[in-house]
Design a protein around this nucleic acid. Structure first.
Lengths: 154, 154
DNA sequence: GGTTATTGACCTTCTCTGACTTTCATTTTA
DNA sequence: TAAAATGAAAGTCAGAGAAGGTCAATAACC
């Protein structure tokens, strides 16, 4: 018997298919439709539409709130996906991060201006907190920026 | 666009466009037009036409009262210098930083791609350390990125 | 028995309203 | 004519309402 999560996953994927890889939905509406708890939707999003699986989620609370699901183009972005899934873990040094940015510039994934902004954001000086945490913060920031670039390329 | 606030924001921006960046309006009139509470107008002004987003509000109460909305048009380099030297100190909230990035995008100082990268770099989620330090780290990163942009433009 | 799924209670954020306050111009009154 | 009253604005703020988020406890599955 098909599990609820699977059905919701299928449903969302169909919608994504119909809407060119990007869609907005209302959490409560969807939960009503499947007669389940609203938090069930979060579970499906977390387990089936994670970054690892090639999706990016944005949302907004309050009146007029929404959840936006974006399918990322994994095939044309395998280098970035590799960076996100394997190369960058919880920590990364400034040198390593700069090397990655340099490489992305060379491959034409980002512009020179973009490379300068990114380098500024991951500098030791920029981060300005105790050294033992810097590499962790840098890894977070780096991944957040890379994810932003992924959503751009669709 | 479901939200009333967004509709009012759009409306005001159209008026501003037509009137060369400065306009006067009557709060109650506008509230009547949108069939909402007058204080809704204040909410829109506070959240969408803040100083960080590049607008300045003047008003006068009593008979013949008005609200004047002024779009700020500062030289781009001066604006960045103001951000670096005055606006951003040791700490800045995510909302304020996002408003500034939004404003820079509107003024054509940065591209949309650059704005997304910058927003990613200053997200609470991206920074991933104890809350009490986030605003400090964010301020550092923001200033580092702005400095990079400033050097680019010379 | 351990992993995966589901729910519900509680939290956070954003929007919108209404009651109350303040300010200013005009008109009335002593 | 100066002070008081009136009316016409705009401002403030707390609270209700409308979304989505989190997490721990339980249930279902393999």
């Amino acid at each position: 018997m098909a599990r609820l999560s699977d059905m919701i996953e299928e449903f969302i994927k169909t919608l994504l298919e119909e809407s060119n890889g990007q869609l907005e939905l209302q959490r409560n509406e969807l939960a009503d439709y499947f007669e389940c708890a609203p938090s069930q939707i979060n579970y499906v999003l977390a387990t089936r539409f994670s970054l690892d699986r090639g999706y990016y989620i944005e949302s907004r609370r309050g009146g007029g709130g929404y959840i936006r699901i974006i399918r990322l183009d994994m095939d044309n972005n395998d280098y970035i996906m590799y960076l996100l899934k394997e190369r960058i873990g919880n920590r990364i040094s400034q040198q390593a991060a700069e090397d990655i940015i340099y490489h992305m510039l060379n491959k034409g994934i980002i512009t020179e201006r973009e490379s300068l902004i990114m380098k500024a954001a991951i500098q030791d000086k920029g981060i300005g907190i105790p050294t033992n945490l810097k590499d962790n913060v840098r890894a977070s920031i780096m991944k957040a920026m890379l994810t932003a670039i992924l959503t751009l390329r669709n």
